[in-house]
Design a protein around this nucleic acid. Structure first.
Lengths: 212, 212
DNA sequence: CGTAACATACCAACTGGTCGGTTTGTTTGT
DNA sequence: ACAAACAAACCGACCAGTTGGTATGTTACG
């Protein structure tokens, strides 16, 4: 693959870094990290290799930046989402799960994937920097659920003594696992199905009707 | 990396194929598929490239065979496990989850991983053959849980109307997700924690005490 | 203001090394 | 003798990263 932009459309000055990050998100989600070459990224972003290594010290550095970029952009989506407007904490948590289901069910299989979940399985041994960036992104997102979870558990009296941070991490576990199994089964519905089980577990813990 | 055996120990005739499969399981679990080179595999197996391509048509063919080999060997471990000897179906399912927890908790992080879960995220787009082999392995394992799940749900009256095959897949989802998040968090305990939540969900569905 | 000095952003060609796979030759069991 | 099982040298394609250079601002000083 040539290092020249595809289609001849040259990218405007100042946009190279951002376009490389978006290309990285797209390509790495679809192909994985090590199967995505620097030339692939440059071609998809419409920039040359010179621009790539001007902005990023190495391919690994791009991967770290892509994980942070992913955390920022997806974090903004969830921060702005409507589920925060539900009246009770339990309803907010369940609405978060519903939002996740909608995001998965409405898309083709190749969009049913998480950048940091894909990358960390490949890089956790070979690149501590990438692993840390992925771990930070995942646990950061988990922490945004903790307050509502703690409140919903407290509202229900929390007879089982469930730990809110642990439950937040479990929610991320189900989401990540759903991505993996959906790819293996070649069917996004498997992921939606599993989120239904997560939803029922949470409803049981909160003492509310499972599918109100 | 040279294609010659490391350490000088030459492999006995007839063992090359099996040793390549075991090397594939070890290396791909640790590094992922595309980061594992054919030369890496040959060196780890103590075999030359000639032997590799004598037994496998391509690297992709080895990946497919490795997924099947993984399914066979791990399937045998679970088929022979003691959890089948529990008295009730609910106890057998919960004992399965406990076995999973023990297998994870007792090992270093690099062993907390599943070959087919690692491979499918990289290969589901580029290689349908690998994706199908991984999918078959995962869903095959899930199906071994279905009979006990159906019986346990029936014993409890199954008021929620939970589907046993769907619940079996959810169990695999949690296991796979636990592997991903454990790597991201660099801590196997995150996986054990999540299996605790799965156990509680199952116990709630079965109407038994969560941690009897 | 104008312009010289500097800094940033980017390009295209290239390099050393690695990759999956092939070819050719050798050993071993039957 | 013959085929299966291996070894070893090799090949073209590809890959991450480098190099030397150009275009486009930005700053500072007279």
């Amino acid at each position: 693959m040539a290092a020249t932009p595809a289609g001849g459309t040259r990218v405007a000055r100042g946009e190279a870094r951002g376009r490389l990050l978006e290309a990285a998100v797209d390509l790495i989600r679809a192909q994985g990290l090590s199967a995505t070459t620097v030339d692939d990224l440059c071609a998809a972003a419409g920039v040359t290799k010179g621009a790539f290594f001007h902005h990023f010290e190495s391919k690994e550095a791009l991967a770290v930046a892509a994980a942070q970029h992913w955390n920022t952009t997806t974090g903004a989506v969830f921060a702005a989402a409507a589920y925060h407007r539900e009246a009770t904490a339990a309803e907010r948590v369940l609405a978060y799960v519903d939002l996740r289901s909608e995001l998965i069910g409405g898309r083709p299989l190749e969009a049913v994937t998480c950048l940091v979940g894909t990358m960390v399985q490949e890089a956790y041994r070979s690149s501590p920097a990438v692993r840390d960036a992925c771990g930070a992104a995942m646990l950061d997102h988990a922490s945004t659920l903790e307050a509502d979870l703690a409140e919903a558990l407290a509202d229900a009296g929390n007879p089982a003594g469930v730990d809110a941070p642990s439950l937040a991490r479990h929610m991320i576990v189900v989401v990540q696992g759903a991505f993996v199994v959906a790819k293996a089964a070649d069917d996004p519905l498997v992921a939606v199905e599993s989120l239904g089980h997560l939803r029922r577990y949470l409803a049981l813990l909160f003492g509310v009707a499972p599918f109100a």
